[in-house]
Simulated scan of single mutants.
Amino acid sequence: MEAGKLIIFTGPSGVGKGTLLRKLLTQHPELVLSTSVTTRPPRPGEINGIDYYFVNVEKFQQMVADDELLEWAEFAGNYYGTPRLQVEDLISQGKWVILEIELEGARQIRRTFPQALQFFILPPSLRELEQRIRHRGTESEEAIAKRLRRAQEEINAANEFDIQIVNDDLEKAFANLEAALFVPC
């Protein structure tokens, strides 16, 4: 059986991680996207166990205390984490498991799972990232400013990752992602 692999996918909000991941999973259905646990309420159309595992704060804290999470972090007032058992089981089955996580979670994974392959997705510029966030039309000026401050902190940490990909052109970024994952060194 082929060895499983843990793949970390990180980058600032609005950089296009989700778009790249959807394309990657469509083109390579053998890859598995890990389902995170969160304390935030479900959005319309989200399904428990598919989009996220939705739990209350007390349950989440118990999972942390019981070491049931590979990583966890607080973001925008809610907690998010990766279920340890699910990921370890998939990897032991030879699956390549992708985690789409925040910077702090990626740093935790690096300490507990150093063999993980870590990607950081970068915007072409902070100005372009701001335009993408504004184009969504879902955030207040205060929220945009907060996201941009956080994005700058995250971008400053990009060199901590094995591979950095600039998402300036979706097809080019996707080709670079595929090459890094599937082309032998």
Rank of each mutant, 00 (worst) to 15 (best):
1 M>W: 08
1 M>A: 15
2 E>L: 11
10 T>L: 06
10 T>K: 06
12 P>G: 04
13 S>E: 07
14 G>C: 01
15 V>Y: 02
16 G>W: 03
16 G>E: 01
17 K>H: 01
19 T>R: 07
19 T>H: 00
20 L>Y: 04
20 L>I: 08
23 K>S: 15
24 L>Y: 02
25 L>K: 13
25 L>I: 08
25 L>P: 07
26 T>C: 11
30 E>Y: 15
34 S>G: 13
35 T>P: 09
38 T>P: 01
39 T>K: 04
42 P>A: 12
48 N>G: 11
52 Y>T: 08
53 Y>H: 15
54 F>S: 04
54 F>E: 05
54 F>L: 11
54 F>G: 05
57 V>P: 08
59 K>A: 11
60 F>A: 05
61 Q>I: 06
65 A>D: 15
65 A>P: 11
65 A>I: 12
66 D>A: 15
67 D>L: 05
68 E>N: 09
70 L>G: 00
71 E>K: 01
73 A>F: 07
74 E>L: 11
76 A>G: 01
77 G>C: 01
84 R>W: 09
85 L>Y: 12
86 Q>Y: 14
87 V>L: 09
89 D>G: 04
90 L>P: 00
91 I>T: 06
92 S>T: 05
93 Q>C: 07
94 G>L: 03
94 G>Y: 00
94 G>H: 05
97 V>D: 07
98 I>V: 14
98 I>Y: 04
98 I>H: 04
99 L>C: 12
99 L>I: 02
102 E>I: 09
103 L>G: 02
103 L>A: 07
104 E>S: 14
108 Q>A: 07
110 R>G: 12
111 R>L: 15
114 P>Y: 13
116 A>P: 02
116 A>N: 05
117 L>C: 10
118 Q>S: 15
118 Q>L: 05
120 F>W: 07
122 L>I: 04
123 P>M: 02
123 P>C: 03
123 P>R: 04
129 L>G: 01
131 Q>V: 04
132 R>N: 04
134 R>Q: 06
134 R>D: 04
135 H>M: 10
137 G>T: 06
139 E>C: 02
139 E>I: 00
141 E>W: 02
142 E>H: 10
144 I>S: 00
145 A>I: 01
146 K>N: 12
147 R>G: 03
148 L>S: 12
148 L>V: 03
149 R>V: 13
151 A>V: 06
152 Q>C: 03
152 Q>F: 10
152 Q>S: 14
152 Q>T: 13
153 E>T: 12
153 E>C: 10
153 E>F: 13
154 E>L: 05
154 E>Q: 15
158 A>T: 09
159 N>D: 14
160 E>D: 13
161 F>A: 09
163 I>R: 13
163 I>A: 08
166 V>Q: 14
169 D>T: 15
169 D>H: 09
169 D>G: 10
172 K>I: 11
173 A>R: 07
174 F>G: 14
175 A>F: 08
179 A>C: 12
179 A>W: 12
182 F>Y: 10
183 V>C: 06
184 P>S: 10
185 C>W: 12
